[in-house]
């Protein structure tokens, strides 16, 4: 009988996978027995008894762990969505500047991309936090007619306040991701043939109109997949909030693990949170991709 090489290989992979899983489950059971905690989620409804500096909804330390986690979830969502918007805006501008005809803008945007892409995100977050905001002390703040205040407390803009922790993370994530988005945009634009530029120019369309009406619509199918992975990275990178002390979902779960020892449960909560969030991002982008492919009835 001839032994199929492929099926032997597949069997081997299965043994390694299930063997590994078995070892992990065994370790988990032993540890759970040793700590005597057991696996359950009833602790979620006990008071959290820790304070949160930042909460979009009312929160006190007597509220439950579940509520604290929900607040963390909202904080994460707030920084992810706002950074996503700013990163896309900045990235598009820089990507266009990098492909454009203006020599000076080209050099500046190339420099921006180089510096941002070649330094660690953690370093950049520290930069925004310590150099950007904390270095401003109380008597060294910028104030414009009581409407716009910048100090080491953050930014206050006509009643809305943004903490320096939020701003450091927001700016750090946006700037970091924008450099990658700029390259995605540039790649998409370069995928459109040069003849298209000549055609719209010869018809008297301005550069701005030609880019928005002719070039970008044709570049989108090449841009969207790259953009999706940058959005997913941004969402995952937001967990570095813990470095600047922003109470995102990861930081709050970290505190809970330290307090209660409920590591497994917290990991599961984090896992599901990020899986759900990223599924939403992936599917939204997939729908957009289908729309752009549909609108181009060619190809």
């Amino acid at each position: 009988m001839k032994i199929n090489k492929k099926s032997v290989l597949q069997l081997g992979v299965c043994i390694i996978f299930f063997g590994g899983l078995g070892i992990l489950i065994n370790n988990l059971t032993i540890n759970l027995i040793r700590t005597g905690l057991g696996f359950n989620f009833t602790w979620l409804f006990k008071p959290a008894s820790f304070a949160l500096a930042e909460h979009p909804l009312p929160y006190t330390s007597s509220d439950s762990y579940a509520w604290a986690i929900f607040i963390g979830w909202l904080n994460s969502l707030k920084v992810i969505v706002s950074s996503l918007i700013l990163a896309t805006f900045l990235g598009t501008l820089i990507g266009l500047a990098r492909t454009g005809k203006n020599f000076l803008l080209g050099i500046i945007s190339a420099g921006y991309i180089t510096v941002v892409r070649q330094t660690p995100l953690l370093l950049q977050l520290m930069f925004w936090y310590f150099v950007g905001f904390l270095s401003l002390n109380d008597n060294m703040f910028i104030q414009i007619k009581n409407i716009f205040n910048i100090s080491n407390e953050g930014i206050e803009f006509s009643g809305l306040t943004f903490s320096s922790e939020f701003l450091a993370l927001f700016l750090g994530l946006s700037v970091f991701t924008s450099a990658y988005i700029a390259e995605v945009i540039r790649g998409g634009i370069l995928s459109v043939s040069g003849g298209q530029w000549e055609a719209f120019r010869s018809l008297g369309l301005s550069e701005r109109e030609g880019i928005t009406r002719i070039i970008i619509p044709q570049a989108l199918p090449a841009i969207i997949p790259g953009l999706t992975s940058q959005y997913l990275n941004l969402a995952k990178n937001s967990t570095l909030a813990i470095a600047v002390g922003y109470s995102d979902i990861y930081a709050i779960n970290d505190t809970i693990i330290n307090q209660t020892g409920r590591a497994i449960e917290c990991f599961i909560i984090l896992l599901i949170s990020f899986l759900l969030l990223n599924l939403v991002i992936t599917n939204t982008m997939e729908i957009m991709n289908k729309l752009t492919l549909k609108s181009k009835k060619y190809g």
């Binding site: 010869s202 009406r213 044709q218 609108s295 181009k296």
Partner: peptide, 29 residues
């Protein structure tokens, strides 16, 4: 460019626009 028309070797039509949209783009915008 508003007074001079050009026809290219590779046509360079806009593939994401219909034939009529290709033609009305410049007059409209």
């Amino acid at each position: 460019r508003r007074k001079v028309g050009m026809v290219f070797q590779q046509f360079n039509l806009f593939p994401h626009l219909s034939i009529l949209e290709n033609i009305t783009l410049a007059p409209i915008h």
